[in-house]
């Protein structure tokens, strides 16, 4: 088996706040293989974005990584220990070099007073040894590639002159122009209309094939995940509760939280089906429940509630590499 492109091991991240240390990510481990699309799902406040930002060391100043946490990036037979990269020039490989990121709100992600073209050229000049003229050529080519009409003219325009869908395309063009190995897409379609969302998803699928990139696709929309991901990781309150292939997780979810998310989705093929919400709200990370973090909202834990309240469930893994952290799941081998 080839080594994973990026490997996250026991990632624990806390934020120093006035109210004490807040655990945002707790013991999270996952790998992304070259060319693989990993979907990361969870409610707001589950720690998805913070996890993704750790891969690029983009979290705020007050973040503290646990000593055991390790993120390893494998590029061109070289290994990088991401969390030990401290100097700006060392961090270039994870910030635009081998890893790029697209954000949810494309308006807020472009500088408003610099043309789209200048922003695209700037990063190419930093990350490659192109001349300005070459960089402009590559940028216009990328804008064409993502389906922006009249790219040469668009190149000289500002972000406010683009519509929402167009901005997100320009964002993708910009992120891909340095030919990264891993693209982190943080809710890239959430702010878009469904028809535009369908266009952007299609575009991303094409580009993965063309550039053989890996994607970490963050979203709260399980439908989008079903359409794009190869594997899915479900996050709740900073913990990974379930990981498996997209078919395993969507067709036979093993964790009560995953089942809860699926049951609360309105389904178009069965309009009469009742919507079953996950009861209650996600607890504050300042006040993490003991034992299984999900026990306060779990509707299935009555039988062995005592255990769920007191004992942290270990991640078990079955023969098909489907991992779940729940006392109630069928017992497999411990990971």
């Amino acid at each position: 088996m080839t080594s994973p492109l990026i490997s996250v091991k026991d990632l624990t991240l806390r934020f120093k706040t006035d109210e004490g240390l807040v655990t945002a990510v707790n013991n999270v481990s996952f790998d992304i293989a070259p060319g693989e699309v990993l979907g990361l799902v969870g409610e707001s406040g589950s720690g998805k974005s913070v996890t993704a930002k750790s891969l690029m060391m983009l979290n705020a100043e007050n973040s503290v990584y646990d000593d055991n946490s390790k993120i390893t990036l494998n590029v061109d037979d070289r290994e990088f220990d991401v969390l030990s990269l401290k100097r700006a020039q060392d961090q270039m490989i994870i910030r635009g070099g081998a890893i790029s990121m697209i954000f949810q709100e494309p308006m807020a992600s472009f500088a408003p007073a610099i043309t789209i073209g200048d922003q695209m050229v700037e990063q190419l000049l930093i990350h490659s040894d192109m001349t300005a003229a070459q960089a402009k050529e590559v940028s216009i080519e990328m804008l064409t590639r993502v389906g922006i009409p009249e790219p040469a003219q668009r190149f000289g325009q500002y972000a406010f002159e683009f519509s929402g869908g167009m901005r997100q395309r320009a964002m993708i063009a910009m992120a891909l122009s340095t030919k990264p190995r891993l693209l982190i897409a943080d809710e890239p379609t959430t702010a878009l209309d469904v028809t535009i969302q369908a266009q952007v998803i299609e575009l991303m699928k094409d580009l993965v094939e063309e550039f053989h990139m890996s994607i970490l696709f963050i979203t709260h929309d399980l439908g989008v995940i079903a359409q794009t991901a190869d594997r899915v990781a479900v996050m709740y309150l900073g913990n990974l509760v379930e990981t498996g292939t997209v078919r395993q997780v969507i067709n036979s979810p093993a964790h009560p939280y995953t089942r809860g998310l699926l049951n609360s989705l309105p389904k178009l093929d069965d309009l009469e089906a009742p919507l079953t919400p996950v009861p209650g709200d996600i607890p504050s990370p300042l006040d993490r429940p003991s034992g299984c973090v999900f026990h306060t909202r779990c509707v299935e834990s009555d039988a062995i509630a005592e255990r769920c309240r007191n004992e942290i469930p270990l991640t078990t893994i079955d023969s098909a590499n489907h991992q779940v952290a729940c006392h109630l799941a069928k017992q497999g081998d411990q990971a």
């Binding site: 469904v194 028809t195 369908a198 929309d221 399980l222 997209v246 969507i250 178009l268």
Partner: peptide
């Protein structure tokens, strides 16, 4: 047809609407 299907085996059948 633009609503993403929850079934991972039904992919890419969206009748794409061009433009905005």
């Amino acid at each position: 047809s633009a609503i993403p299907s929850l079934d991972p085996d039904v992919r890419g059948h969206a009748q794409r609407l061009e433009g905005e």
